[in-house]
Design a protein around this nucleic acid. Structure first.
Lengths: 223, 223
DNA sequence: TGATAGAATATAGATAATCTATAAAATCAT
DNA sequence: ATGATTTTATAGATTATCTATATTCTATCA
């Protein structure tokens, strides 16, 4: 791991925020594997910062479930367990359905167009990470119009966790594009104005993806 | 406000944790009103601590939605807005129903007994704060057996927010015990093993309480 | 007189050096 | 070899200090 590039000072964002952002990316992408200890002095040295903003960044990531903190023993990257995958999946299903139902009232043509563009980007992606970016963009397009910031924040945190589980499980190699059919089906029912059908499809889609992920994770764990 | 009592050192909990706990209580109870600025040096002086653990406590409370942070301007107590009440209510309904469905598999007689005791405590309470404690205990008894720590944490944060809205709106004066009938109905259906009916009743109960709260809040806002 | 530009002040955010307590590692004695 | 003990590394916290920004106060001018 090479040293942090001298980031533009950017006085609008605190040092803690920038550290939190970089650490988040590393954990989600799997560069920092589950269980790894994250030393505050190491991080501070890398970012040429003191331990104060580092600790603040730790607290943010802890709240998002990416780090776990043990008193007097520092923090480590949260483990990846099948039960956690199930939990995050079910929470996402419940909350994205809620957000979609609320968003449906306010859904504009531009929102639907954005969702379509996201699905097009999915189909053009040859890489798991790129596909996941488009996948996230699609889900976000469906729920963002609900205008419920707290709900959207929690959904975002959960999706981040999902992404981490996905990337840790599929490793970009043995991956082929999938589930796009479900995505189009959700978008179709929504375009037709059938919110309940779209909600049901979205829920089933999230749960199915979660089941597949968990199965694969358990299988990998047994090898 | 008098000075902080010399707390037992308690080496198992960090200074940041203790500060976060006390600030949480003050915000939920309304001692720190919405919009109030919370100065880091003021808090540090009161707890005879440095600004470092204070800032960590701020980050924890920010993640729970009790504080909002404005860059270079510090933190203030989160405002109480009808839209936020609605948001928290709907999230609670969705997530507590999910938790209840999962908990139902594992529900023991002891859990049901705990719920009954909580309802008895509600009926004996003459004070809004005491009632709310029992109310929380009841809801917790229903969902805790699901054994999904992340879900339970989010539910807990949301319930804390609900409590704050409740106490800010009803002010302990013009309050009379209510909604206990709904509580008993939920418990009855659950005792009979009808999980779906209990889930529906729980959802409707949370949403109804939220509607009442929001109406009252809007009415108060107009006076 | 009132609005506004500019100086003064308070404070958020951050640094650096330092301290204590504890967990982990290394060493020593049996 | 193994168990006890010392050493070492580091988390958590303090204190003093620094800079940049918000806010407040004040003085000037239309």
């Amino acid at each position: 791991m090479d040293a942090q590039l001298p980031q533009p000072p950017d006085p609008d964002r605190s040092v803690a925020e920038r550290i939190a952002e970089v650490l988040t990316r590393r954990i989600v992408l799997g560069e920092l594997p589950p269980g790894d200890r994250v030393g505050q002095d190491t991080v501070a040295a890398e970012f040429r910062a003191s331990h104060v903003p580092v600790r603040e960044a730790f607290r943010r990531l802890e709240a998002r479930g990416l780090l776990v903190s043990e008193p007097r023993r520092g923090v480590r990257v949260a483990p990846i367990a099948p039960e956690a995958v199930r939990e995050v999946t079910e929470m996402r299903a419940a909350l994205e359905v809620l957000a979609l139902r609320e968003a449906a009232h306010a859904l504009t043509d531009a929102d639907l167009q954005e969702a379509r563009l996201a699905l097009a980007a999915e189909e053009e992606s040859g890489d798991l990470i790129v596909w996941e970016e488009a996948n996230r963009r699609f889900h976000r397009a469906l729920v963002t119009p609900c205008r419920m910031p707290r709900l959207l924040q929690v959904i975002d945190d959960l999706h981040q966790a999902s992404t981490r589980y996905l990337l840790a499980t599929w490793k970009s190699l043995d991956w082929e594009p999938r589930s796009d059919a479900e995505h189009w089906a959700i978008l179709d029912t929504l375009t037709r104005g059938d919110v309940e059908a779209a909600a049901a499809a979205l829920s089933e889609h999230i749960l199915a993806a979660g089941r597949a992920l968990r199965q694969r994770l358990v299988a990998r764990g047994r090898i």
